[in-house]
Amino acid sequence: MADPIIRCERVTRTFGNRTALDNVTLTVEPGRCFGFLGPNGAGKTTLIRCLLGLARPTSGNIVVRGFDISREPAAALARVGAIVEEPRFYGYLSGRQNLELWAAYVGDDAISRVPALLSRVGLDARAGDKVSAYSLGMRQRLGVARALLSDPEVLVLDEPTNGLDPDGVAEFRVLIRSLVEQDGRAVFISSHLLDEIEKVCDDLAIVNQGRVITSGTLADLIAAGGRELRVECDDAARAEALLRALPTVTAVTVSADGTLSVQLAPDSIETRAGVNRKLIEAGLAVSRLEPREDSLEERYLALVHEAGQA
């Protein structure tokens, strides 16, 4: 596996008595979209500000592209693009003039990338308009174009779809996936929007009250949750008694229409087939056996709730 493009090790940030980040450890791999999911005030923006060198962690290390952000910020940020909180521009300049200005700060041949970037984010037709006349969605897209000026290996986006209309959200999602799949860039997105994370991210960490409560691939995270089977057969009462006796079954409920909801232990790999075999061996006619995994929303709510109780 390639070296992580972002590595946070036991990052803590306090503001007076308040701990905004508490021993946060996570890694972002190249060519992956990483979601940093948490409720408002969980510490998402604080971590982003720390990993971009805009704020200093109270303790812990952040390594970006192999460089410690505290000791070698210029090297670490040389190929990092970002939108923090919201994309800010000079409203009295046009979109193109804004990008040309930032291209001067970036240096190298960034200026030569401006037309292509405007085209990529779909702003070439409005590039001559003043940014003060842009909608939020247009400013977000211009923000992505600015973040791409340095041809970054990793993009860091803080709540990038906040305030966008549904069309804008969909367009933004396509843009992000193209950055990951076509360009091979890593994208780090913080958000409190489950739907957004679920649709664009490969990996994620869930943060609550400054602590990472879980992290991993999206698929693993969902699979680690409780699993359920919906079963319909010709004798619900017998089936219920039979299934309750199975060690891999944690709970069984029967609805008014006779459908059984069977809660399976998360670590069992053959439970679905086992349940089916058991029912058939008992002479029951199984007409439906439908697996149902937790949604990200259910997993998120369960984990945040557990963390809150702990």
Partner: peptide, 14 residues
């Protein structure tokens, strides 16, 4: 005041 400073600093310009 405008919030543009952070984006200048993110370019690596000190």
């Amino acid at each position: 005041a405008n919030g543009t400073l952070r984006y200048i600093l993110l370019t690596g310009f000190s």
